[in-house]
């Protein structure tokens, strides 16, 4: 993406052209291509093919035949509209929250942490050392009715006894935010860290105060990180189901929960496939529009 161009004046070196016809580049590409075909192209095709199958009346569980029934998509979408829309709303909220939390954090690490920088970076990724699931489960304890937060809040006069945090949309969005925070922080850090501090000094030298410098120089220069971070947060968050399953209630289920349920519990592969496909397509469209809008490839 935008990282290809460098900010310094020395980027205009000569580009080496292909000197002779050789198989080497193709050979080098081969493992990647095989990987791509095996783990992306093939599943996509099989997903597409499964999505239009139909279960014959009376057939064994998990038995489906191809009838090219595209109405599966309409059925699947109509039956699960609610969770579908909810997924994108939750993912968007979590992305915004993660950005709000991660930006100051990444900024601090990049510019103000001094010798503690590496320790802080390790702390940012430290949650990855335990399983995603266990971390989320830990949240149920922290946010539980008799957990530290609710107990403390209940001491306040205006908080009534029925106050709760778990099994609420709040808990699900918080869980999503927390779990994907490192995906937001690291690209932000990477792009902030790349900023030449002299451009910030130059801005100050050119009559911009600290806030204007932040707005006019730091933010635009960190935009590639913002774009990367928001995508890395939004995409998995939209497809996530762990947080909704553990921290939510029956009214906070996301599309990932539905896909998981259709696939494993109901063994309704066509619906699961149609939903996965629709989710993927929607994310792809949103991401394309987003990247177009933010114009990242022109940045820097």
């Amino acid at each position: 993406m935008a990282f290809l161009h460098t900010a310094t004046g020395t980027s205009s070196g000569p580009k080496s052209g292909i000197k002779s016809k050789s198989w080497t580049p193709y050979l080098l590409l081969a493992p990647g291509l095989i990987w791509l075909i095996t783990f992306f192209i093939f599943p996509i095709i099989s997903l597409a093919s499964t999505s239009t199958m139909v279960r014959p009346e009376g057939a064994q569980i998990g038995t489906y035949v191809q009838e090219l029934r595209f109405a599966n998509y309409i059925d699947a979408f109509q039956a699960n509209q609610e969770q579908y829309i909810r997924s994108f709303i939750y993912a968007a909220l979590a992305t915004i929250l993660a950005l709000a939390i991660a930006y100051p954090l990444a900024y601090m690490i990049a510019f103000k942490s001094g010798k503690y920088r590496n320790i802080l970076l390790v702390l940012v990724v430290a949650p990855f050392f335990t399983s995603f699931l266990l971390r989320t489960v830990a949240w149920t304890q922290i946010l539980g009715d008799e957990g530290p937060i609710v107990s403390t809040l209940k001491l306040l006069p205006f908080v009534d006894e029925s106050m709760r945090l778990t099994s609420t949309p709040f808990a699900v969005v918080s869980g999503l935010t927390y779990n994907f925070l490192p995906f937001m922080t690291l690209p932000l850090y990477a792009s902030l860290e790349r900023i030449d501090p002299r451009t910030l000094e130059a801005s100050g030298d050119l009559y911009a105060n600290a806030f204007t410098t932040f707005r006019k120089v730091t933010v635009p220069l960190s935009l590639p990180g913002v774009v990367a971070g928001t995508l890395l947060t939004f995409i998995p968050a939209a497809g996530d189901y762990i947080n909704a399953a553990i921290l939510g209630n029956p009214n906070t289920r996301m599309i990932g929960n539905v896909i998981e349920s259709r696939f494993f519990a109901v063994v309704d592969y066509p619906t699961a496939a149609a939903l996965s496909f629709t989710l993927m397509a929607t994310i792809l469209i949103l991401v394309t529009l987003y990247i177009r809008r933010t114009n990242t490839d022109e940045l820097v």
């Binding site: 004046g9 002299r198 000094e201 130059a202 030298d205 050119l206 220069l221 820097v300």
Partner: peptide
Amino acid sequence: KPYRRNVNTVFQNYALFPH
């Protein structure tokens, strides 16, 4: 503060705003 000084600098590596 630097942004109040009637002084401007041409930096060693120019420090132009790349964006």
